[in-house]
Amino acid sequence: MKFTVAQIAQVVGGTVEGDAEATVSSLAKIEEAGPGALAFLANAKYEPFLYSTGATAVIVSPDLPLRQAVAATLVRVADPYSAFTKLLEFYAQATRMGKRGVEQPSYLAESATIGAGHYRGAFSYIGDNCVLGENVLIFPHAYIGDRVRIGDNSIIHAGAKIYADTVIGRRCVIKAGAVVGTDGFGFAPQPDGSYKAIPQIGNVVLEDDVSIGANTTIDCATMGSTLIRQGTKIDNLVQVAHNNEIGRHTVIAAQSGLSGSVKIGDFCVLAGQVGIVGHISVASHTTLAAKTGLQKSVREEGQVLQGYPAFSLRENQRSAVIYRRLPELERRLATLEKNQPAPDKP
């Protein structure tokens, strides 16, 4: 796909310095870009590449001074990083939405309905009484169980599994290998020490603009719904257990795990390998740093926590400094004790 620099400037709301009719067909890093590529400059340490890049066009800030001649056409925008991100989204949508039609073999139940402009890849399966909106993309080997609802412009990538009764909103993305709606980990201990499975009869509800990463698992509720609210983004290899409720625009990084019946507020950040015990709540605007283990509810908004068990990031960092000094402090204590005069005998 080719675009003129003028068209790019229109998409990002920028102004052109140079050849507005020059064409670009790819996006690239400024230090690696060649002819036909569009790059961006947002970090000052990469400025030297602006004068040597082979890119046809570069997105820059409006107040960036030029210290020497620039061969590339410039597109000046208020926020180059955000503008380039917008172009990545535009490019991804343009290429993905180019998929249309049905590849064979694939299966669509007679009782299922799917809107106009859809794509069904080879070996995909859509079960009974499913309702899929317009421009939905179902990539090869994806499985859509019975009675699933998927909103307009959502994408189900290759090999994803969507279990029965799941509800997926508009513009959602389920990446390869993700499993949404599988049974929660519910087993009742028996008098003889064995365990009996508790039927999981609830579902999973994803609101609009939710993204689920590759090989992430979201369990259905025992009863009711496991709920992922609007705009939340979940990374690869994350476990979300049954009856969780995750608020709006929260982000969860890879290898994190949430036990059952956890409630996460809006605009929270869970960094990599965060673990949360069951049946607690986390206030909105909370940040849990990498490898944090949370054992009790966070009731005050805006906190940044770290460690296991979790406590204030700043206090945790101070404690880490002391921890690193423990061998030295032990030697000093031993020296002081050795030099201390023996106490007088009574």
Rank of each mutant, 00 (worst) to 15 (best):
H279S: 12
A241P: 03
G193L: 10
I280W: 07
I212E: 07
G184L: 07
C220V: 09
A241L: 05
S225E: 14
G213D: 03
D235M: 09
L237T: 00
K233M: 06
H242C: 10
T226M: 09
D209R: 06
V238T: 01
D183C: 07
D219I: 12
A221K: 03
V240H: 03
Q239A: 13
V205M: 11
N236P: 01
V251N: 11
G159Y: 02
Q190H: 05
Q200I: 08
I246N: 03
I246R: 08
D209V: 02
T232P: 02
A254W: 03
T217Y: 05
V179Y: 00
Q273P: 02
K196W: 06
T222L: 13
R171E: 13
V205H: 10
V210L: 09
L227A: 03
I276Q: 01
Q239S: 08
G257N: 10
H249G: 04
G260E: 04
T222C: 11
K196R: 12
D183Y: 11
F185H: 11
I234S: 00
A271T: 15
G213F: 01
P189I: 10
G257R: 01
T250E: 09
Y195V: 01
G184N: 09
V251E: 15
V251F: 13
V251R: 11
S194N: 10
V167Q: 11
T232S: 15
I276H: 01
V277H: 06
G177C: 10
F187W: 12
A178Q: 10
S256D: 13
D208G: 05
D192W: 09
G159C: 08
S194F: 07
V277P: 05
A221G: 06
I212D: 08
I264Q: 07
D208P: 05
S194I: 06
V274M: 13
T250S: 15
A254G: 15
H279Q: 15
R248Q: 14
T182C: 12
Q239E: 10
R171N: 13
A221C: 08
F267E: 08
Q239F: 10
S225D: 10
A241M: 06
Q273H: 15
G260D: 03
Q190K: 09
F185W: 09
A241R: 01
A214C: 08
V274A: 15
T226C: 12
H242D: 06
L206V: 04
A188G: 00
I218H: 00
H249S: 15
S256R: 07
R170A: 13
Q230H: 12
G193W: 09
K175E: 11
N215G: 04
G224I: 04
R170Y: 02
L206S: 03
G224Y: 04
Q190S: 07
V204C: 09
I264P: 05
I234E: 00
V205G: 08
R229K: 14
R171K: 14
V240C: 07
G247D: 06
V282L: 11
P199M: 08
F185Y: 13
K161G: 00
A221H: 04
A253K: 05
A221S: 08
E245H: 14
V173R: 01
I228M: 05
V282R: 06
N243R: 13
V179T: 05
N236C: 03
T166D: 01
